[in-house]
Design a binder for these strands. Structure first.
Length: 581
RNA sequence: GCGCCCGUAGUUCAACGGAUAGAACGCUUGUCUUCGGAACAAGCGAUGUGGGUUCAAUUCCUGCCGGGCGCACCA
């Protein structure tokens, strides 16, 4: 349709002997103003020395002469010189039919066909709690992954874990010192992991305030690397498994399946090899710029030499130990090695790592420009809490799991008036809780902090994940009722009236495309709210399943179309669409 | 100090240089003999500030004010 309209405009301009290289066609913000709109008249008015309105009228006249398309019903000049196109009843009925035929494939495109993309996200560390920040990274990463898949890409999901380092030593120190308090082997995996997390927090505290403990922790740290102490090894193996298993359970609840797990300990030697191999190597013909060089006994990368906005970072410490930077470098290269024909390597993290990531990316670019060009960093803000209820629990980190549980319990309370089998009730409550949290994160553009409001995320009034799920469940009820009453969906039995929801449904593929190009799930989230609202409005003002109504079949088809778009859209956000809730 | 990001109704967020800045919560009011009231319908209410570019600026450039993050051996 877009192409048709563009060609029509182009032909009209040719007749008027006006040359334009690019015609912008968009949807007017207000549905009343039409379905497509162009501003060409305003952009070229100056060159042709006419006023925009007059010119627009002339173009409209030409378009009306040329138009033979039955889907274009009305073309008119409006406002300061816009040309608005109104599409016909038939067009919308046609798009409803198309959506019903596409079903779960609605909104797919092939812009990323044959592209292999790896996306790394979540990255919780063994022995540390999975906190709400990880929840945020996970929600964004999973959604972006799904959106790219919907655009035809072959996506692999990667997770990167800090399996060695001081944080592990801190936890192990406390676990060994107070096993009775922190090791709870006969409780659930998640409880065990919770206590390991607490041991870590206690260890971190002691490391700061207790010099004896600090010395001991440093010693344990070395022994973890060397694997020289049987008792430490045993505790390490147990704790590693417990926390990783607990993470795995969470991923299942959240709906993520990782294809690759990279471990920091394994990236360290890879990165160190690269750094040492390129030490003091000049990269420019004049011989003034090196990638890695020695400075104060450490090996550093002076990124500001290449970009004044970047800064120096240490890659190998004076002690000869690889830093996080070096491991990241190793990881970047390892990813390309495991996926030789990868076209894009995405990393999702909080935005405190933005500058750091830029420096590492610069280093990669110098080592291998092709790889550098394929790296993409998506950064997001912090998750904060609106009301005191959760935020006020001082000293007690809010873990991803505790938040999920609290939200799920609140959801269960709201589900009292419907009948479910018990396991089903739990499953649905969990899906609704995930949706409440994920939607709160994904409804706004990535990059900024999000203020999580516990109450409004589940209240399902208006702007929330549960509201979307509720709309889907309602549509599903309608469909079930239609099946029972034996009324078939019929996209050809349309009434005269065009419903607002139809004017939104056909735009879904464009929204997916934009989200995919910008790596921005919030376009989909905002669109779904709009569609849900218009469907609920349609639902409230029309009797849909009605044997006496000739257009009932059409309204049922429309309900199907809505349910496909909603279900698919929710799935792109990483949210499930239960048929009942 | 330098760099990056941000400042929109009372609050939390939208707006790919376009039309009357759009929602939700809150507040005020209305709708229940209909398929799920976790709903629908109506009203009130905003671009931090001074310049500039443009036919057109919340959007681009720039000064100021206010906030967040990062800047050498932690991850």
């Amino acid at each position: 349709m877009q192409e048709k309209i563009k060609n029509l405009i182009k032909d009209a301009l040719e007749n008027l002997k006006i040359e334009v290289n690019d015609i912008a066609l968009e949807h007017p913000a207000d549905l009343k103003m039409g379905d497509y709109s162009t501003n060409v008249a305003m952009t070229v008015a100056k060159n042709v020395k006419t006023n925009p309105k007059e010119l627009a009228e002339k173009i409209v006249a030409q378009i009306l002469r040329l138009n033979t398309d039955k889907y274009i019903e009305k073309v008119e000049m409006a406002g300061a010189g816009f040309i608005n196109f109104h599409l016909s009843r038939k067009f919308f009925a046609n798009s409803v039919e198309e959506i019903v035929n596409e079903a779960d494939n609605v909104g797919k495109n092939e812009t990323l066909k044959d592209k292999k993309i790896m996306i790394e996200f979540t990255d919780p560390n063994p022995f540390k709690p999975f906190h709400i920040g990880h929840l945020m990274t996970n929600a964004i990463g999973e959604s972006v992954a799904r959106i790219l898949e919907h655009s035809g890409a072959e996506v692999s999901r990667a997770n990167y874990q800090g399996d060695v380092g001081l944080h592990v030593a801190k936890a192990i120190f406390v676990l060994l010192k107070n096993p009775k308090e922190y090791i709870v082997r006969n409780e659930s995996k998640s409880r065990q992991a919770l206590f390991i997390g607490k041991a870590y927090a206690r260890g971190a505290e002691l490391y700061e305030n207790d010099t004896a403990a600090k010395a001991k922790i440093d010693e344990i740290n070395k022994k973890i690397y060397s694997k020289s102490d049987a008792q430490i090894n045993e505790t390490y193996d147990w704790g590693f498994k417990v926390t990783m298993d607990a993470f795995q359970d969470l991923y299942e609840t959240l709906g993520t399946e990782f294809d690759f797990y990279f471990l920091e300990s394994q990236m360290a030697p890879v990165g160190e090899g690269i750094v040492r191999a390129n030490l003091n190597k000049f990269i420019d013909p004049q011989g003034s710029k090196k990638i890695f060089e020695e400075s104060d006994g450490a090996i550093v990368f002076k990124a500001e030499k290449y970009d004044p906005k970047l800064h120096t970072r240490v890659f190998i410490t004076r002690e000869g130990l690889p830093t996080y930077e070096t491991k990241e470098l190793g990881l970047a290269e390892e990813k390309f090695k495991t996926n030789p024909d990868m076209s894009l390597s995405i990393i999702v993290t909080a935005n405190e790592q933005m500058d750091y990531m830029r420096v590492v990316t610069k280093a990669v670019s110098l080592l291998d420009p092709e790889h550098g060009a394929k790296m993409k960093h998506i950064s997001h803000g912090m998750m904060r809490f609106a009301s005191g209820k959760m935020g006020s629990r001082k000293g007690n980190v809010i873990t991803g799991e505790s938040l999920l549980n609290d939200v799920r319990d609140a959801v269960l309370e709201k589900m009292t008036d419907r009948e479910f089998e018990n396991t089903e009730r739990e499953k649905i409550a969990s899906a609704v809780a995930v949706s409440a949290i994920k939607y709160s994160i994904l409804k706004q553009s990535t990059g900024g902090d999000i203020i999580y409001d516990f109450e409004s995320s589940i209240s399902s009034e208006g702007d929330s994940g549960p509201y979307l799920q509720y709309s889907f469940a309602r549509a599903n009820s309608i469909i079930e009722k239609a099946v029972k009453e034996n009324i078939l969906p019929d996209p050809h039995a349309f009434p005269k009236e065009i419903f607002e929801v139809e004017k939104l449904l056909y735009k879904f593929p464009e929204i997916v495309l934009r989200s995919s190009k910008e790596y921005e799930p919030h376009y989909i989230a905002n669109y779904l709210i709009e569609v849900a609202r218009s469907f609920n409005s349609f639902y409230g003002n029309n009797l849909i399943v009605d044997k006496k109504d000739k257009s009932s079949g059409y309204k049922i088809a429309l309900s199907y179309a809505f349910s496909f778009v909603m279900k698919t859209g929710l799935s792109l956000l990483g949210i499930k669409a239960p048929k009942k809730m």
